[in-house]
Write a protein that binds this DNA or RNA. Structure first.
Lengths: 176, 176
DNA sequence: ATTACAAATTGCCATATGGTAACTTAAGGA
DNA sequence: TCCTTAAGTTACCATATGGCAATTTGTAAT
């Protein structure tokens, strides 16, 4: 992408510095923004029928993130997105995203890529939950995202991997 | 949608009658078509590293289907789509889909809906694999898609649910 | 009717994971 | 520093599921 285009696109983003614990997307509310995460870690989770939190995804900087369904369909989100650390973000509004989609081909291309990556992520995760043992899933997480394993509380990682915190604690011991 | 538009869109679809066992999308090949399934059942599966088939999805008529990644990104498919019964399909080429996207707003809207439904399916499935027992997943399948439970061989359903055929056979016995 | 083959079932035991309760460790506030 | 609380660990046992092997059932071809 040319510098001109990059600069143009950058003008639509607004810098935000937020503290640990902030919810940047809330269950039940329609998400108005997409984000670029410059620093920090974000956890995405839903609350199931029994009231348990299920962590469905982590984002660690640098990365783009939004709630695909809530943002692009402008409907209430089913998930919460919580900052696990203090973070610096750059946000763009739905209106501006629409404007950029219509007027900047490179931005449209970027949107397509986001969508594809999102889809690939879900498919990989589905297959992992399907065929891998909890230990394999944990080992893979260490390989691909060591920063998450290091910085995120064990019970959240356990929930993300689909096991209890007790099991994950045992898996940790075995791996060492 | 108006009848005029519907008729116009229909002209881009070509009827195909195919027999049980036919692969309509092949692993390794770039998918050139999207389909409307008028009658029949389709199974989507991948082959994992150990050579096992993992069934990732069923489609039963009437439904639209394509391989999102292979079709829209025009890259080799990672999955196979197999007819489990004789079937009548209506197919539309990638070129024609692009044409319709550019020229028929209703079609664009339909594309967006497909994408969203696809996404919702993957998320639901992820959560099901995450939190439900095999028995719950099977019960839900019976509720939502009894025709699949009736017509599809047990070992394929087992693979879809993420359990062995032995376990599913036992689950079946308990439920009765 | 007979054979052949795939699909499905079931007894048996192994393994992975769940869940409680007790305990230890770590971290932040008064 | 002490106190309080959350996080993490671990012993123990329960439950869910895996997987082999033997058997039965169903189905299609001859």
């Amino acid at each position: 992408m040319s510098d001109d285009k990059a600069d143009l696109i950058a003008t639509f983003f607004k810098e935000e510095t937020l503290t640990k614990g902030t919810l940047i997307i809330n269950e039940g509310k329609t998400s108005k923004k997409s984000f670029f995460l410059e620093s920090g870690i974000v956890r995405c989770y839903i609350i199931d029928l029994e009231g348990n939190e299920i962590t469905t995804r982590f984002f660690s900087a640098p990365d783009f993130l939004n709630d695909f369904l809530s943002f692009f369909e402008q409907q209430p989100s089913e998930e919460n997105y919580e900052l696990l650390t203090d973070a610096k973000l750059h946000s763009i509004s739905f209106t501006d995203v629409q404007y950029c989609f219509h007027n900047i081909p490179e931005f449209r291309e970027w949107g397509r890529m986001m969508l594809t990556l999102n889809h690939v992520f879900l498919k990989k995760r589905m297959i992992a939950l399907h065929k891998e043992t909890a230990q394999e899933r944990y080992s893979n997480l260490i390989k691909t995202h060591p920063e998450i394993v290091q910085q995120v509380p064990l019970h959240m990682i356990a929930s993300y991997l689909g096991v209890t915190k007790y099991s994950l604690s045992r898996i940790r011991k075995e791996i060492k």
